[in-house]
Amino acid sequence: HERALMVNRLQKLTRMLRVHPDPKWKQEQQELIKRLK
């Protein structure tokens, strides 16, 4: 369940980064990718 939330968050971040590349979001995205591996 928590994994699904993280995947959701990651997808949302990816969409937001396409619109507005924010370093903070980029960092969070990298963190999520690490944790999901």
Results as ranks from 00 to 15, higher is better:
3 R>W: 14
32 L>Q: 00
15 R>D: 07
12 K>H: 12
12 K>S: 07
30 Q>R: 11
17 L>P: 00
4 A>T: 12
1 H>L: 12
7 V>T: 04
5 L>I: 12
7 V>Q: 08
26 K>I: 12
20 H>W: 11
35 R>I: 14
19 V>D: 09
9 R>N: 00
33 I>D: 00
35 R>Q: 10
36 L>V: 01
29 Q>H: 05
16 M>V: 02
20 H>S: 10
12 K>A: 12
16 M>W: 10
11 Q>C: 15
27 Q>I: 10
13 L>T: 01
9 R>A: 03
33 I>S: 02
13 L>V: 04
8 N>E: 15
5 L>D: 07
18 R>E: 06
37 K>C: 15
33 I>R: 07
18 R>K: 11
37 K>L: 13
25 W>D: 04
4 A>W: 14
10 L>K: 00
5 L>M: 14
35 R>G: 03
34 K>P: 01
7 V>K: 09
37 K>Y: 15
6 M>E: 03
5 L>P: 03
10 L>Y: 03
29 Q>Y: 14
27 Q>K: 13
17 L>S: 02
9 R>L: 07
4 A>E: 12
3 R>I: 14
18 R>M: 11
17 L>Y: 03
37 K>M: 14
31 E>N: 07
14 T>Q: 08
17 L>E: 00
25 W>Y: 11
22 D>R: 08
28 E>L: 06
23 P>F: 04
24 K>R: 12
37 K>N: 11
19 V>H: 12
8 N>D: 12
26 K>F: 12
2 E>S: 08
8 N>Q: 15
23 P>I: 05
33 I>L: 11
19 V>R: 13
25 W>S: 03
36 L>D: 02
9 R>G: 03
23 P>C: 04
30 Q>D: 06
10 L>C: 01
37 K>R: 14
6 M>R: 04
36 L>H: 00
33 I>N: 03
17 L>M: 05
9 R>K: 04
20 H>E: 03
6 M>N: 02
4 A>H: 13
25 W>G: 05
24 K>Q: 09
24 K>I: 11
24 K>W: 05
26 K>H: 08
19 V>K: 14
6 M>W: 06
10 L>N: 00
19 V>W: 11
35 R>K: 13
12 K>Q: 15
13 L>I: 09
35 R>H: 06
35 R>N: 05
22 D>L: 10
8 N>P: 01
35 R>D: 02
2 E>C: 15
18 R>A: 13
29 Q>S: 05
17 L>C: 02
1 H>G: 09
10 L>G: 00
19 V>F: 13
34 K>I: 10
36 L>Q: 00
15 R>Y: 06
29 Q>W: 12
18 R>T: 06
29 Q>N: 02
3 R>N: 07
12 K>I: 13
13 L>H: 00
27 Q>S: 08
8 N>M: 15
21 P>W: 15
20 H>N: 12
15 R>W: 08
21 P>H: 14
35 R>F: 10
24 K>T: 10
19 V>M: 12
29 Q>V: 15
16 M>Y: 05
11 Q>K: 15
13 L>Q: 01
32 L>T: 01
6 M>P: 02
23 P>A: 08
23 P>G: 05
16 M>P: 01
10 L>I: 07
10 L>W: 03
9 R>P: 01
17 L>W: 00
25 W>T: 06
1 H>T: 13
26 K>T: 05
21 P>V: 06
14 T>Y: 09
2 E>V: 10
30 Q>S: 08
7 V>G: 04
13 L>G: 00
5 L>H: 14
11 Q>A: 13
9 R>W: 07
21 P>D: 12
37 K>H: 10
4 A>P: 04
25 W>Q: 05
15 R>L: 10
29 Q>A: 14
11 Q>R: 15
36 L>Y: 02
17 L>R: 02
8 N>R: 15
24 K>V: 12
3 R>D: 04
33 I>V: 06
14 T>I: 11
9 R>V: 03
2 E>Q: 11
33 I>P: 01
8 N>C: 01
6 M>G: 02
17 L>V: 03
22 D>G: 04
22 D>A: 03
37 K>D: 06
32 L>A: 00
7 V>I: 15
4 A>N: 10
36 L>C: 01
7 V>R: 13
20 H>Q: 08
23 P>N: 07
6 M>V: 06
4 A>Q: 14
16 M>T: 02
10 L>E: 00
1 H>W: 15
17 L>H: 01
18 R>G: 05
30 Q>M: 12
18 R>C: 15
14 T>K: 10
31 E>R: 08
1 H>P: 11
26 K>N: 04
21 P>Q: 11
33 I>Y: 06
37 K>W: 12
11 Q>D: 05
3 R>V: 11
34 K>A: 12
15 R>A: 12
29 Q>G: 01
3 R>E: 05
8 N>H: 13
27 Q>L: 14
12 K>L: 14
7 V>S: 03
3 R>A: 04
1 H>N: 13
18 R>Y: 05
32 L>M: 02
15 R>V: 07
7 V>H: 09
21 P>E: 09
30 Q>H: 07
27 Q>H: 10
4 A>G: 09
